[in-house]
Amino acid sequence: MIEFKNVGLVYPNGTEGLKNINVKINDGEFVVIVGLSGAGKSTFIRSINRLVTPTSGTLLVDNEDILQYRGKKLRELRTKIGMIFQNYNLVKRSNVLKNVLAGRLGHTGTLRSIFGMYKKEDIALAYESLKRVNIADKIYNRADELSGGQQQRVSIARVLTQKPSYILADEPVASLDPPTSHQVMTYLKKINKEDNITTIVNLHFIDMAMEYADRIIGMRAGEIVFDGPASEVNEKTFEQIYGRTIREDDLRGEAEKVEQP
């Protein structure tokens, strides 16, 4: 369980990233955070694995205040939180297997990892994860030989290999075309249901948010302005969150269902 209690974050240059956030995310939920760019979605998500550090309040993950964590404790926290990025963040010159095994780094000793001596179980786990996102045949290809959608699937496999309790996804489909976007979201949703991994996704496409989310949190200017089940949400709600009328580019658009995993 993740719980924000009066969390605020002021950047060194004085901008307020988060303002008095109070929210509780239950285990197994699929939460989508929506809002315009600059609304604080990314700051919110990155606070949970401490890629940014809130400056006030308490942030509980599994009932422990993670804002006090440093060093080893912080790395341990991060091993149980997987993260997916807009630009996939793979090492382009390394092959797919190596990229996926990188998800295991937090569980592997420094010396072992430098010499690439992973345990047999870890390699099997990496292979299994690749199979789950249907990309096991590319295992020895270099990451830069893959398409954007394939790279994002590799990055999902990397997160799976990490065996996390939580997955954070920061605009995972912003660089993809509509069919691939739906494919990636479908994988995320499937993993959420099958492994019961709490998943928090940042999106700015409202149609995708409505389609995949259990619960939607709306943010504007560092504050939570909406929080409710996806079933209660309609275009009106989004107009309130965005503070303007909905436009064409707020929608990802339908895609014929592709490659049902």
Binding site: N49, L51, R75, E76, L77, R78, T79, I81, G82, M83, F85, N87, Y88, N89, L90, V91, K92, N99, A102, G103, L105, G106, H107, T110, S155, R158, V159, Q162, L168
Partner: peptide, 12 residues
């Protein structure tokens, strides 16, 4: 970017 991803997964 990849270094950030590794940091996020608990690598030192």
């Amino acid at each position: 970017n990849p270094l950030e991803a590794m940091r996020a997964s608990g690598a030192n």
